[in-house]
Design a protein around this nucleic acid. Sequence first.
RNA 1: GGAGAAGUCGCAUAGUGGCCAUUGCAAUAGUCUUGAAAACUAUAACCCCUCUGGGGUUCGUGGGUUCGAGUCCCACCUUCUCCGCCA
Length: 419
Amino acid sequence: MLDINFIRENAEVVKGACRNKNVDIDVERVLALDVGKRRLMTEMEMLKAEQNKISRGGKDNTAIFAQAKEIKEKIKEMAPELEKIETELKVLLLQLPNIPFEDVPVGKDDSENVVLRKVGQPAFSALKRGFGEAKDYMELGAALDLIDTDRAAKISGSRFGYIKGGLAVMEFALVKLVMDTVIKQGFVPVIPPVIVKDQIARGTGYFEASDEKEAYHLPDDNMYLVGTSEQSLVSMYTDEVLAETDLPKRYVGFSTCFRREAGSYGKDTKGILRVHQFDKLEMVIFSTPEQSKDEHKLLLSIEEKLMKALKLPYQVINICTGDLGRPAAAKFDIEAWLPSEKRYRETHSTSNCTDFQARRLNIRYKDKAGKTSFVHTLNGTAFAIGRILIMIMENYQQKDGSIKVPKVLQKYCGFKIIK
RNA sequence: GGAGAAGUCGCAUAGUGGCCAUUGCAAUAGUCUUGAAAACUAUAACCCCUCUGGGGUUCGUGGGUUCGAGUCCCACCUUCUCCGCCA
């Protein structure tokens, strides 16, 4: 959510942001509603002041009390009009996107994202090492009995999987790698709730764009399964005031994530690249406005550090305005090389949401002068485990179909190869 | 699931129908001090408007009663305690 004062004073900037983010909202309408609201409020407040003056007067003055009652009725008549304006204004305000930073590339959709750098050699494909075409992870997994989507389909339907054996062990190794990497940087590990209340699911702003259908709903309790632990982590400090000296607060959450994948029929239907349930380690930071750009760099650097530790080839993408999403002011993705598809696929994403989420969730901090303002919130993937397992399987496959365990994970796994 | 209690500033508290919500701690500024602590003084409760004097709004949320509600009534939300069930 944007600050109404900001919109009032920077209407052109807001319009530009809508244009660049492909959001179709009538900013002039917002301004008109705002003017109308304030005009009506002032009028009602003047009446109210008069009423208060009369009431404070004293006791048992029937004539004057009748007058006060008359004013009260007048105010009551005006109330529905104000409510109507406020409701419409609120709906529009919730739909307005965050303003992208100046240095974010302008573009209409993901085709105009900018590659910042490529790290590692994608040519580390099976091809170059002289054992023919790279096998895809499903083929490797079937041979080694690591992934079973057929039986998962029998039990739970499509887009589910059993992850088994050495691959299941590797999940815990990845968790340990992340913990050892980020706890040093001051991140507090958290295992957050994965079921959240209706108002929290809405509050985090994931439901605004019609992605309401993306979350699993539990109708008996009117609660939702989280699509990412970002939802329960960021909302942790809803309606709280933090101390400036405690910022930045850094957290790394581990949780299962649930997604209905409602709009993605026919996309990545095979295997476990896109599933209804997966585990993810997610970093979330609460910072002051001054800190947030540096914290964003920190998140990206940690993501790259983790990818480098696994020695997976990847590229870093600067997401353009049209692909940013509503809450982000800036966003970087990491895409790892998937040999079987001979292209990069997204594994990580990190966003700086500035005060956009905080205003909506009412997360503030008190600065040294005693003034309260909204914090900045940031998030970044540490590992989306299913996808990283896929990347490891394909990039570490051997000529005989076995899979080498990345060196950093060997001590956590207790074995060096899956065969 | 059953029965009780409670929600007021960052924290803790007072406020049982009538002046624009009390007090303490913490915070910020100042006085004093070589410096610090202590002490003292001042500031600040959410948000809106403003002619900068001030006005309005706000006591978990939403309704209601009243000339007037933190205070009375109703519903809801949340938390806590006890009982029952349970990993």
